[in-house]
Amino acid sequence: MASLIHCPHCGVRPKEEFSIRGDASLIRPDPEASDEAWNDYVHIRSNPRGRYREHWQHVAGCRRWLVVERDTFTHEVFAVTDAASSAREAGR
């Protein structure tokens, strides 16, 4: 876990200002999607070593949800972006 996170809205902040939700690559399925799709979305999580995209919320700051792309092994943070922009890009 990183010590400092660069919030795109607030600048460099300590990890204590954030809360972590988990995998950011999951996209909420359509209500009509298959049982498997919903099961995967709600229950199935990988625990990868290496590059990972996670949803973090800047709870004590701007309260925005962010996509933190980081390495779970080296703890390097590659990018932090606003989750809404990512969601729009993903065409949600």
Partner: peptide, 8 residues
Amino acid sequence: VGTSSNVL
């Protein structure tokens, strides 16, 4: 001076 932000 003039900067503001939510912080912990």
